[in-house]
């Protein structure tokens, strides 16, 4: 069913709205960062597009990107399960796959589509940023902004050993950012894909309990802000690795902790679907009219 669902998603206008929203966000971010960097004392010739890209998409929750994550994460396919249950299209699909398999595939397809879509629009944004200003120039002012300073270059460090060390040592991520920006940017893009996949999966699970499209689409927003922004207001910054942008400023998280933080809800939501979806569907006890939408 994965192929069927992916075919359906890529023939859906909302999937393209999701991609275009991501690209527009990048373009808007370039303009915003242009002025921000001038305010920070960095002249335009002192930094490059990759740095601006990381300023937009590698930032923490106190940013435009952080604010719109739950909104665009549900655009691609967040309401598809709800729509299938409401219109009855779930039934011909279930007849061919089985009930549990249907829900699992639905969950997996949403996560795959959102992950791939995010990686796609971030790569387009990165490409635009590099076209706008190539090279690998970091603004000198950045050294003073970084709270704990840059770690020293380790003799013989390579991209591979850097990634391995960053998986358990927080301080290596700033090192990667400074010395191997493309490797760092690639990791950043992958983690953003994971973040959006995790957030959008909340809508899939909410579809099992909520019978209203707008509530389903709002649930990721509520959960995301409760668990991330809410924790910040409680001064629990250390609990929130966010994406990697937080690392190059604060160096509070290792790569593993970031991956675990975002993989954990994805795994938890998958377990909920695996264990409860089939029973939940049969317990709906819908009237014949509701059964057929």
């Amino acid at each position: 069913m994965l192929r069927a669902e992916l075919y359906r998603i890529v023939h859906r206008r909302w999937f393209y709205a999701f991609i275009i929203a991501g690209i527009c966000l990048g373009l808007g971010g370039f303009v915003q960062q242009w002025y921000t960097n001038i305010d920070m004392g960095a002249a335009p010739h002192q930094y490059n597009g990759v740095y601006v890209f990381l300023q937009i998409f590698g930032a923490d929750f106190n940013s435009s990107w952080g604010g719109v994550i739950p909104l665009i994460a549900v655009l691609a396919s967040g309401d598809l399960l709800w729509a299938d249950l409401a219109t009855g299209f779930a039934m011909p699909m279930m007849l061919r796959t089985g009930v549990r398999r249907y829900f699992i595939d639905k969950f997996a397809t949403n996560a795959i589509a959102v992950f791939c879509g995010t990686v796609l629009f971030l790569l387009i944004d990165l490409g635009l940023a590099i076209l706008w200003r190539g090279g690998l120039q970091w603004p000198p002012v950045l050294k003073f902004v970084m709270v704990k300073g840059l770690p020293q270059l380790t003799r013989g460090e390579t991209a591979f050993s850097g990634i391995v060390r960053s998986s358990y040592q927080p301080l290596v991520l700033p090192w990667l950012f400074w010395h191997l920006p493309y490797v760092y940017t690639a990791l950043e893009i992958l983690i953003n894909g994971l973040v959006l996949a995790a957030v959008s999966s909340v809508a899939v699970v909410a579809s099992l309990w909520l019978r209203n499209r707008y509530l389903v689409l709002a649930t990721p927003f509520i959960v995301y802000f409760a668990f991330n922004v809410g924790l910040q207001f409680m001064h629990l910054f250390e609990w929130i690795p966010t994406s990697m942008g937080g690392s190059f400023f604060y160096t509070t998280a290792s790569l593993t902790s970031i991956l675990l933080y975002w993989a954990a809800p994805l795994v938890l939501l998958f377990v909920i679907v695996f264990l409860t979806a089939s029973g939940r569907y049969r317990r709906l006890r819908l009237s014949p009219k509701e059964m057929n939408g």
Partner: peptide, 28 residues
Amino acid sequence: IGVVFDPPALIADLTGLQNLITISKIRN
């Protein structure tokens, strides 16, 4: 088994052919 539902269970935002292709991709 095959079932004709009433009202028919279809994907409203795809064409008829796309509906059939979507379903056909499950079993190939």
